[in-house]
Design a protein around this nucleic acid. Structure first.
Lengths: 229, 229
DNA sequence: CGAATCCTTGAGTTCCCTCAAGAGAAGTGG
DNA sequence: CCACTTCTCTTGAGGGAACTCAAGGATTCG
């Protein structure tokens, strides 16, 4: 796929003119990262941001003891590290490819030029940043005010909505260890809680596929109205 | 103070032309909130955002059981709830005045008009949103990867930097109960940890004033290299 | 089929929350 | 200015959720 075609598939760039797509295509750097490769590390000089063309990328923090907290998992079409373009000069977290991924790197200065002359791009960017803020606020709320079963229930319901609520089957796009890290816990604890949820009939879990058997019950777990026995 | 003068003191609006200040001054709604009054609640229709002219405002989430998690405490010159202008339609958290406060409400549509024709305002806004994202990312990291002593140490050092690092004395701008809520804990736990830090010579705490006696040691507590005995 | 990775299960410990009550500070009114 | 209420903070005892450490089972991949 050409660079221009790939750019057209990125929601953030919706509304650019032909000429602007060309300008953008001139400055982006087409990059490939194999599964497990680091894209950047916390503290690296943040000279631009990325959009994912294909694959999957995790943004995460590490504690000195090596525990990991995933901030976000991004897929095709999504930008990441945009904040580095507008604030501060270094990346505030690590980024690693979870699958073999193709990404475009967009240098800060070129993008700042482009956005100056394009209000709709600016609006898209502000909408994107705002959405991230909202998700982070939600994450803080979950970490501080909910226990792990509540966080897991909330996440399962979130996936249920994302993936077209028709069926009761949701697909965890990531492994259990990663899911644990995203929920602010560890694999052992996640495993135990999945088992308990299954025994109590809330879900039916098999590999990366989970059946939501009792959405109502999960909702109550998520809000803290009910507790896992 | 006139509306225009007050607006000029807001960093977000730096770079506006005379005429744009006038436009803005025409649409803002000047409001006063007494200490303890709610400015908006989670889920309320988010038809605009606010800037604080004077006073102090907390943005917070509540659990069903009534536990509170403060997301941010804002002071004079700072905007809040900007995200509501660009994403979603309802406020994702609660806002309450911690002191008697004067705020300007800025309706969404008027602001979107203004920002469309003013790239520098858009840049300011994106910088502001990016900074918030960074702070939230930090908060998630702290909640998930640090224990309460580490979070407290990190916060004290943060205040130390904010308040001109010359003296070792920092001023907690908020009460202990609020600080606990900001750190994702409860007043009892915070109190115990302050006592322990004091006994071990890291700090000297008296009311809202705290002496940082051992910045190096606090740093080590914050990173998790050292533990509170 | 074997190796490596990922996931699960068990036992023990720790941090922090809950519940309860007392001490201190701050604001009000006589 | 002092008693009073009220709010805020501190201290204690007990319990629970989740983490650490350790090892066994399941999946995946070459």
């Amino acid at each position: 796929m050409s660079i221009k075609e790939s750019l057209a598939a990125v929601p953030l760039f919706k509304g650019l003119s032909e000429q602007q797509y060309d300008e953008l295509a001139m400055v982006v750097v087409d990059q490939e990262f194999a599964r497990g490769r680091t894209i950047f590390s916390e503290g690296d000089d943040g000279v631009g941001f990325y959009v994912i063309i294909s694959g999957q990328v995790k943004i995460y923090k590490l504690s000195p003891e090596g525990k990991e907290q995933i901030l976000h998992v991004f897929g095709a079409g999504e930008p990441f590290a945009e904040a580095a373009v507008f604030a501060g000069s270094s990346y505030p977290a690590h980024a690693m490819a979870l699958k073999n991924s193709r990404v475009f790197f967009i240098p800060r200065s070129a993008f700042r030029e482009l956005i100056k002359d394009n209000p709709s791009l600016a609006m898209n960017m502000m909408a994107s940043l705002s959405m991230r803020l909202k998700r982070f606020a939600h994450m803080i709320e979950d970490l501080s005010l909910k226990e792990v079963p509540g966080r897991l229930a909330a996440h399962l319901l979130y996936l249920g909505n994302e993936q077209g609520g028709a069926s009761d089957e949701v697909e965890l796009q990531i492994g259990k260890a990663h899911l644990a890290s995203l929920l602010g816990t560890i694999p052992e604890t996640l495993s135990r809680i999945l088992t308990r949820m299954q025994k109590q009939g809330f879900i039916d879990s098999a590999g990366k596929s989970v059946q939501l058997l009792d959405r109502q019950g999960l909702e109550e777990l998520a809000t803290g109205e009910r507790r896992l026995g």
